[in-house]
Amino acid sequence: MALVLEWKTQFTLLFMIVGMYASQVTCSQDSTSMVEKHESWMARHGRTYKNDIEKAKRLNIFTKNVKFIESFNNNDSKSYKLGINKFTDLTSEEFMRYYTTNHGLNSKFSSIKSQKLSPTTISSFKYENISDVPSEMDWRKSGVVTSIKDQGQCGCCWAFSAVAALEGANKLSTGKLISLSEQQLLDCSTENNGCNGGLITMAYDYIVKNNGIAEESSYPYEENQDSCKIQDSIVKMSSYETLPPSNEPMLLTAVARQPISVGIAVNEEFKLYKSGVYDGNCGDEVNHAVTIIGYGTSNENGTKYWLIKNSWGSSWGENGYMKIARDIGNNDGLCRIATMASYPIV
């Protein structure tokens, strides 16, 4: 009897050891796979770290983000997907610090009241009937949108949004699509706060007063504020108008005519957006600027959306673009997208 018990004990111990070894092998394989994935990601994005300690820290953050992405995407009830992009080695706190808050639309500019709307600047154009508006619009298909740009860690999204809207307006007016200089606005629109945020309307003010703006090729982007340089203006605008806040139908009629600059309330969930119609959480106040370049309805679930051009590079979102839910029953729109809209007049 003792011999049988001893044999059973030894067998149990052997089974436990084999199980522990298998678990260690699996963990080791998972770790190796993640290390390889991180190395590949670093090469793709040209990312380097100052030392091994920093690299290990970023690998840990990268691993957590990848696992979160995989878990989120396993939920088939979501209308959008997450994906690995250039932000995948950043914590949510770092992302918000570098790409929003005081690095987007500066906090002192974040209220729609700061735009000091007057009857002469508030837009009054609209279609006679909302049914006259096309059911969908994508200004890229008409050659009205330049390629995706990347603001980097300089919080001048306000300049990128203003420039994108003006590029579109100029194309519609002259037939020429010209990439314009965000750097000129960053350096010369001194009423704004450079890399620490600003207002789209102040950027428009500068362009009107300066009698135009230079081409990007003659005044290229540097990702930091520098001294203002005298440049020949290649595109001029006569004025600009703002849309009444909290009015998505009015915003729709505007986007049907040209790309529109808007502010949005971004939070950390935007960091890993990859595709689909975003209907997730938003920030508490407007802290980032983008350009609406269209709208439509999702074929998958019939969700209405706005199509926005962002300035976070082409690895983010749908090659730099995003679909965000429209007509959600909130006058401000999802992420307050209808509270701070404006457009240039060429």
Score class of each variant (00 low, 15 high):
Pro119Arg: 01
Pro119Leu: 08
Thr120Met: 10
Thr121Val: 11
Thr121Lys: 06
Thr121Phe: 08
Thr121Tyr: 03
Ser123Ile: 00
Ser123Tyr: 09
Ser124Tyr: 12
Phe125Cys: 12
Phe125Leu: 14
Lys126Phe: 14
Lys126Arg: 14
Tyr127Met: 07
Glu128Thr: 14
Glu128Arg: 14
Asn129Glu: 10
Asn129Arg: 09
Ile130Trp: 04
Val133Tyr: 08
Pro134Cys: 06
Ser135Ala: 08
Ser135Arg: 15
Ser135Gly: 15
Glu136Asp: 13
Glu136Ala: 14
Met137Thr: 03
Met137Arg: 15
Asp138Ile: 09
Asp138Ala: 09
Trp139Val: 03
Arg140Glu: 13
Lys141Phe: 13
Lys141Arg: 15
Lys141Ala: 12
Ser142Asp: 11
Ser142Gln: 12
Ser142Glu: 12
Gly143Phe: 07
Gly143Ile: 06
Val144Glu: 05
Val144Pro: 08
Val145Lys: 03
Val145Tyr: 05
Thr146Glu: 03
Thr146Ala: 05
Thr146Ile: 00
Thr146Gln: 02
Ser147Thr: 15
Ser147Lys: 15
Ser147Met: 13
Ile148Pro: 10
Asp150Val: 02
Gln151Asp: 05
Gln151Thr: 01
Gly152Phe: 04
Gly152Pro: 10
Gly152Lys: 14
Gln153Phe: 10
Gln153Ser: 11
Gly155Thr: 03
Cys156Pro: 01
Cys157Ala: 10
Cys157Pro: 02
Cys157Asn: 12
Trp158Phe: 10
Trp158Arg: 08
Phe160Lys: 04
Phe160Tyr: 15
Ser161Asp: 04
Ser161Cys: 10
Val163Arg: 05
Ala164Met: 08
Ala164Pro: 07
Ala164His: 04
Ala164Ser: 06
Ala164Arg: 01
Leu166Cys: 03
Leu166Met: 11
Glu167Lys: 02
Glu167Phe: 06
Ala169Arg: 05
Asn170Trp: 05
Asn170Cys: 06
Leu172Trp: 09
Ser173His: 11
Ser173Gln: 07
Thr174Trp: 12
Thr174Glu: 15
Thr174Asp: 15
Thr174Cys: 13
Gly175Trp: 03
Gly175Met: 11
Lys176Thr: 08
Lys176Asp: 10
Leu177Glu: 00
Ile178Ser: 06
Ile178Gln: 04
Ile178Ala: 05
Leu180Phe: 00
Ser181Cys: 11
Ser181Arg: 00
Gln184Val: 09
Leu185Val: 06
Leu186Gln: 00
Ser189Glu: 07
Thr190Gly: 12
Thr190Ala: 15
Glu191Asn: 13
Asn192Ile: 02
Asn192Met: 05
Asn192Cys: 04
Gly194Trp: 08
Cys195Ala: 08
Gly197Gln: 02
Gly197Tyr: 00
Gly197Ala: 04
Gly198Glu: 04
Gly198Asn: 06
Gly198Ile: 07
Leu199Gln: 01
Leu199Ala: 09
Leu199Thr: 02
Leu199Pro: 01
Ile200Gln: 06
Ile200His: 03
Met202Ala: 14
Met202Glu: 15
Ala203Asp: 13
Ala203Gly: 13
Asp205Phe: 10
Asp205His: 04
Asp205Ile: 06
Tyr206Lys: 06
Ile207Cys: 01
Ile207Arg: 01
Ile207Gly: 02
Val208Ser: 11
Val208Ala: 09
Val208Pro: 09
Lys209Thr: 02
Lys209Glu: 09
Lys209Arg: 13
Asn210Trp: 01
Asn210Ile: 12
Asn211Tyr: 14
Asn211Ala: 13
Asn211Leu: 13
